[in-house]
Design a protein around this nucleic acid. Structure first.
Lengths: 228, 228
DNA sequence: TCGCGCCTTCTCGTATACATGAAAAATTCT
DNA sequence: AGAATTTTTCATGTATACGAGAAGGCGCGA
């Protein structure tokens, strides 16, 4: 029932686009949550979004169901959509899951002697071209690098699972970067080291770098998401 | 557009139940796919299900979206719902993913010296009480045992990921059992051995048993799902 | 004043109606 | 006849309507 922000002007978006309405509704609601406008623990109602975007409730419902599947909200029967509170425990679990999947990918890449893919090089290249100021863009590319790494291992199912984790952590990743911008430089260094170890198929070294790479993030999380 | 089976009598189900309609529609469509009545590669239309169950298209749409999220069908824009063909590659990937997650769970249980949970014992108990004839029930319990094992490790996120894998492989698991009923006895023995190793916190042994346990299934899969 | 139950209100869940766009069918041209 | 184009069909995508169930307010009684 809490409307965190009053929209002065109905959030009109380009209705000319031909992509399905529910997709745009989904992206809109997702961004509101990501940006923290819909705080965790507050309710959103279908009609809110529908009128704000000038669409009917039907596509909003479909977007809500997708958001629920991705654990952004909980759909309470006849009550509304509760924006999930990100708990510390959940973050720890997400990072452990990431570590499990990424470690496996690294092991496969090294054991099967898979060369570093063009995708990985492309992402690294884009990262270098991007000025350090562009924290948002860099953060996106960093996440993409990890995705591409997992994809390289060649297991589509694991890649999908990893993607869903990625969506879940995205909320916090953004604020984590903002809270400590100096981390970006460190992350870049670690990424280069990781790709280097992968190119040399040095499994032990790559795994060690991954460990060091993921561990400190948990500390940041704990500070950002005090227990509800 | 292919309706594999003509329903002589509209598949009437108990409309008195108070659980949401979309849930029943979901379960119905899911079972049809699981039982192979909607063959892989064929289209199902919303209206088919709606009229077969005597409901409107609205809950059917929601059920379809859920089935798509669980990878039972592909929703093609303005075309319909395509029942996914289970490829050998996908099955191999699913089993590899299972192995990754279950191995991690075993490692954690052994390293943190977590005692075998009451849940696990309960499932084992139910399994022993169930007569060997009950292949379907035994298969369900076997899957449940693995779920409980993963849950024991205490990572809710990984448990969720595992659950989604479980749903994906269910289609084939059923037919796999039917194709080779002698496997059930072997599975039971391996499960007992696995729990034994877990109780002793013998990580290496438990992992070895898991490997042996999951590997032969892939052979069965390859025979059951010839490349499309 | 406080507790209990009724009533109002408001949102979701489902049904129905209409619009849109793609596939299939019919027609025409070569 | 064969192929390309137009027409038709028909399932999906979206909007709207209606009913049911829960939350909160209000009045009544202790």
């Amino acid at each position: 029932m809490i409307m965190p922000t009053v929209m002065e002007r109905p959030d009109e978006f380009d209705r000319a686009r031909k992509e399905p309405m529910r997709e745009r509704v989904y992206l809109y609601a997702r961004e509101q949550i990501l940006r923290g406008r819909f705080g965790g623990g507050s309710f959103i109602e279908e009609e809110d979004i529908a009128s704000a975007l000038g669409v009917s409730r039907t596509p909003v419902r479909e977007a809500f169901h997708r958001l629920e599947a991705e654990r952004f909200i909980d759909l309470l029967p006849r009550r509304g959509a509760l924006v999930r509170q990100v708990t510390v425990q959940e973050l720890v679990d997400v990072y452990e899951a990431r570590r499990v999947i990424e470690s496996h990918a690294i092991s496969r890449i090294c054991r099967e002697k898979l060369p570093v893919s063009a995708d990985m090089k492309a992402v690294l290249g884009k990262l270098e071209k991007l000025p350090p100021r562009e924290t948002f863009g860099r953060s996106e590319l960093n996440r993409e690098l990890h995705s591409v790494l997992v994809a390289r291992a060649g297991n589509a199912v694991l890649s999908e699972l990893y993607q869903s984790l990625d969506a879940r952590q995205q909320r916090v990743a953004m604020t984590a970067i903002e809270a400590d911008p100096t981390r970006l430089a460190r992350i870049s260094r670690e990424h280069h080291a990781l790709i280097g170890a992968l190119a040399a198929w040095d499994e032990a070294r790559a795994l060690a770098i991954l460990e060091r790479h993921l561990r400190p993030i948990m500390g940041v999380m704990a500070r950002l998401a005090p227990p509800a």
